[in-house]
């Protein structure tokens, strides 16, 4: 006969509810169960927040380090390399040709990165395979002309962050399943946004469009 049964027998006048409450109180295994549950919860939580992003995203280094800060200082402004063409299309990341406007076959500095640049790309006349942090999925059409000075007059920091102040190129992270840059989904696994450039999903575009134009846009406005 168990302790519980004794108690129940001795005190048969109390209601069923009180008995159950008592049963729970008397159960010494309960404490261990709670602790086990908490441990399991912490393990799963830590696993999903710390381990999952590591599994989901592969890390890729840029071909060599690029100093945006120095280049903005030397070239004067962003438009020296990233500009709109006359047909309204955006030049994007400059080709080797644009680099060579300044780097005329000889290094301008003495950093290791410049050595890589000259030996591997300039000398071999090979385009630099940059990983593009802000690259959107293939189905997305993005009009720079519609957002910068010619259109909505947005500052490029709003989407790209303070990139002109960076001296090193950070590691590029690619989603192993979709092949998209991590900058699209955002750094924070819960999708919490601190800055306007933390994340560039469809909902982020739609939110801004809704606020600025009163309409989140028809599909083809941003899709192709």
């Amino acid at each position: 006969m168990s302790e519980l049964e004794n108690k129940a027998k001795n005190d048969s006048t109390i209601s069923a509810g009180e008995k159950i409450a008592q049963k729970i109180k008397d159960d010494k295994g309960l404490g261990q169960g709670v602790i086990l549950f908490i441990i399991a919860f912490v393990v799963c939580f830590a696993g999903s927040t710390l381990l999952f992003p590591k599994l989901l995203y592969s890390k890729k280094e840029q071909p060599f380090n690029f100093d945006h800060y120095l280049h903005v200082y030397e070239a004067g402004d962003c438009e020296a390399c990233h500009y709109l063409r006359e047909d309204g299309s955006f030049s994007g990341i400059p080709k080797l040709e644009t680099c060579m406007e300044c780097h005329v076959e000889e290094p301008l500095g003495v950093t290791d990165d410049e050595v890589v640049f000259v030996k591997e790309y300039l000398a071999k006349d090979k385009e630099i395979p940059w990983h593009v942090y802000a690259k959107q999925p293939d189905c997305v059409f993005f009009s720079h002309a519609g957002h910068i000075d010619t259109g909505a007059r947005m500052d490029f920091n709003e989407c790209h962050g303070p990139i002109e102040e960076t001296k090193t190129s950070r590691t590029y992270e690619e989603n192993r399943i979709t092949g998209y840059s991590r900058d699209i989904w955002g750094k924070n696994i819960f999708g919490i946004k601190k800055n306007s450039w933390d994340r560039m999903k469809m909902d982020d575009c739609a939110k801004c469009h809704k606020e600025e134009t009163g309409h989140q846009g028809y599909c083809f406005q941003c899709h192709k």
Binding site: A8, K9, K19, I20
Partner: peptide, 15 residues
């Protein structure tokens, strides 16, 4: 709830 109250009642009555 029914299961618990029944098991308590039954164990009480079985002796």
């Amino acid at each position: 709830w029914d299961t618990m109250s029944e098991s308590i009642n039954n164990s009480g009555e079985s002796h």
